[in-house]
Amino acid sequence: MSAEVVAGAGRKWRKPPFIRNPVLRYGLLLAAAVYIYWVMTTLPFDWERIQEGLPRAARIFNGAFPPSFERSGLLIEGFVESLQIAILATIFGLLLSIPLAIMAARNLAPKPIYLLGRAIIIVARSFHPVIVAILFVKAVGFGPLAGILTLIVYSIGFVAKLLAERLEEIDWGQVEAVRATGAGYFKTLLYAVFPQVMPRQIGLSIYQLDSNLRASAVVGIVGAGGIGSTLMNAFGRYDYDFALAITMVIIAVILVSEAISGRIRKRIW
């Protein structure tokens, strides 16, 4: 087969650029470069302190190995508390999420109530649980109570939002059919609305229990009880070997809980 191809010779081809406007294209590239340069030069890096990092890292890792399970009593206690926090927060969070989700579903609630419901959800979602935890710790003191209240807010932000979205997608024909039998608002909810969202809701609940367990390990860092508090104490006392043991157990528990919740959800959905 000959390689001599004459027709159409000399036609140029370049890959059409991702952004057609050349000013915008190079402008964006330049902006990104300038941004990175600006950030790296203006962020307050404490270089002297950072230089001490390597020896410190070596010391920490030396201190952390081998992980110490000597105080396993403390470890288990912390985990049981985390579990309690997660369970109670999930239950109360779900109970509160249901009315809130109905409030925040456009098709089920009157406009003013809908806006109120949305506002509550947005506020609950905007704050990282750790910030909420700090406020609760200040209000009700150190310990699991602050953790539970925090994770209730966290659960509401997630479950109520998704449930409200699901409620807005329900098949309205079923609602009309039940209404046509003369059923009132709550009976309609019970017979035409809840059956449509139930499987999703159960899946969500299990997912939320799983993610509350994760979060409970974190809110403890600011004093809201559970394994996070144990970890924070270990870190504060430079017990790096105990801290490593705690971290390893946290990872293991999270993996197991993720696997369990994944399996249950697969069976329900």
Partner: peptide
Amino acid sequence: LLFVAIFGPGV
């Protein structure tokens, strides 16, 4: 927590 312990507080 870990990186603060290593590199000190900061960005």
